[in-house]
Design a protein around this nucleic acid. Structure first.
Lengths: 134, 134
DNA sequence: AAGACGATAACGTGGCGTCAGGGTGG
DNA sequence: CCCACCCTGACGCCACGTTATCGTCT
């Protein structure tokens, strides 16, 4: 409400998430909004954490993995080990993404071939094929 | 049990899935094993379908989407209109795959950049970086 | 008094994992 | 009689969505 904290609605608008999601993240100890009466007020720290949560999610990390990563960042001591651990996880994730992309290329080829075959069953579908496949 | 059909255990071994998964797919009408008493017997058609199910899953399609795709493949014998409909859906799927691949490509770049940035925080992680990113 | 915004509680969903308890065939 | 393998429930998990019902502020 002050310019240091945000209401749940402001958070939703700012980060394009639902209130349910923010409450869920609090329940899972990923966020720690302070309370003004019953109402949650999200701090700068919560916003920083949420940014990392959403990024982590896009990379396919589970919330539990993200919670661990966040805790690592919070821990002041031993930054070297923390970063190395983070790094190891990121490398794993990257390799997964690359494998997925490669498999996806394969399936795209498969489906294109199937469509080429299917198009021979028709006489008039060349146009839509070209539209779809460039 | 004959050389045309397989027991659930044989299916598990052949496709590296659990029995629970196969029963679940039957419940969701993705597979249609015949029965010998209580026991399920999976046909050649089931095996072909399962291959496609597993392929689709790796690319992040929902089982419901996969069910629709399978129905498309079943419709090969269809008439002109059905084939056009099939074709339209196949084009949609192909576009989905391409978008998915492009998004993955973005994520990979994004994660690589993150790791490059992170590596500057360290002094000694160049080796693992090169291992991961080539 | 109405309407916007907040809260909690609790059930639904997808894709199975994981028991529990009970056949059935060799 | 045992064991391996099969079956059908039915509850558990994750990451929320979706009501339902209520309180609070303006």
């Amino acid at each position: 409400m002050t310019d240091q904290t945000m209401t749940i609605r402001q958070m939703c608008d700012a980060f394009k998430v639902t209130a349910r999601t923010l409450r869920f993240y609090e329940a899972k100890e990923l966020l720690f909004p302070i309370r003004e009466g019953q109402k949650r007020l999200f701090t700068k720290r919560d916003r920083a954490r949420l940014k990392l949560i959403l990024k982590g999610k896009r990379f396919g990390f589970s919330l539990e993995e993200i919670r661990q990563l966040l805790n690592l960042y919070d821990d002041d001591s031993g930054k070297f080990n923390q970063l190395n651990e983070t790094y190891r996880m990121a490398i794993d994730r990257l390799e997964q993404l690359i494998r997925r992309r490669d498999e996806l290329e394969e399936l795209i080829e498969d489906l294109r071939n199937h469509m080429d075959w299917a198009s021979e069953q028709l006489n008039d579908s060349q146009t839509s094929l070209k539209v779809a496949c460039g």
